[in-house]
């Protein structure tokens, strides 16, 4: 755990998910998977949170809510799209009230596949998020004036997916 720089607090918002991923996000925090051993705390306050975990797709009505929670979070921050719907609409892709995945409104840093996601992948994603968080913090130190920097990075394709997070950040986690 020595190379995990931050104890990441997460905030969770259910976009228009079926609850399957939501209960798995909660399950990741409870004794069997126990994300708290990595210092992960589930908070309800966007200002306290480092990692924004979104489940479910985006529609017209929840888009401003997701955007607002994102804006209220302080830099550096990381967005994790949990589950097939959050990544790109999932089975509801062709429904009339679904605009698409989370990246239609805010930049996403990590995409977690699965319908529903497995708690193991959520853990992987959060640990990957910590790595991205550290990078963003470093970038901010280098250039404190450029507050939007991390946002730009995310939207120009500096994404990590769970598949390529094995860069040592979670090597100690196992």
């Amino acid at each position: 755990m020595s190379n995990v720089g931050k104890s990441p607090w997460i905030i969770h918002y259910d976009g228009s998910s079926c609850n399957g991923c939501d209960i798995e996000v909660l399950a990741a925090l409870t004794p069997l998977y126990d994300a708290e051993r990595f210092g992960v705390v589930n908070t309800g306050n966007p200002k306290h949170a480092d990692i924004f975990v979104v489940t479910g797709g985006i529609n017209d009505q929840n888009a401003p809510v997701v955007k607002q929670i994102y804006d209220q979070m302080l830099e550096p921050k990381v967005v994790v799209a949990c589950g097939a719907c959050a990544c790109g609409g999932g089975v509801y892709q062709t429904c009339y009230n679904i605009m698409g995945g989370v990246d239609t409104v805010i930049p996403v840093d990590a995409y977690v596949p699965g319908c529903a996601v497995k708690p193991e992948s959520i853990l992987d994603a959060v640990i990957a998020g910590v790595g991205i968080l550290d990078e963003k913090a470093k970038a901010m130190k280098k250039n404190p004036a450029d507050k939007d920097r991390s946002e730009k990075d995310a939207s120009t394709g500096a994404h990590a997916s769970v598949a390529d997070v094995d860069d040592g950040t979670n090597a100690d986690a196992e």
Binding site: D14, G15, S16, S17, G56, G57, N59, Q61, N62, V65, V91, Y92, T94, C95, Y96, N97, I98
Partner: peptide, 22 residues
């Protein structure tokens, strides 16, 4: 209305066996 997806309309696009998954 925050979670409304419009699943009932999907029957037009998925047949009755596929709709089990929906």
């Amino acid at each position: 209305g925050y979670v409304h997806r419009g699943l009932e309309k999907l029957v037009e696009k998925r047949d009755y066996t596929q709709f089990v998954y929906v």
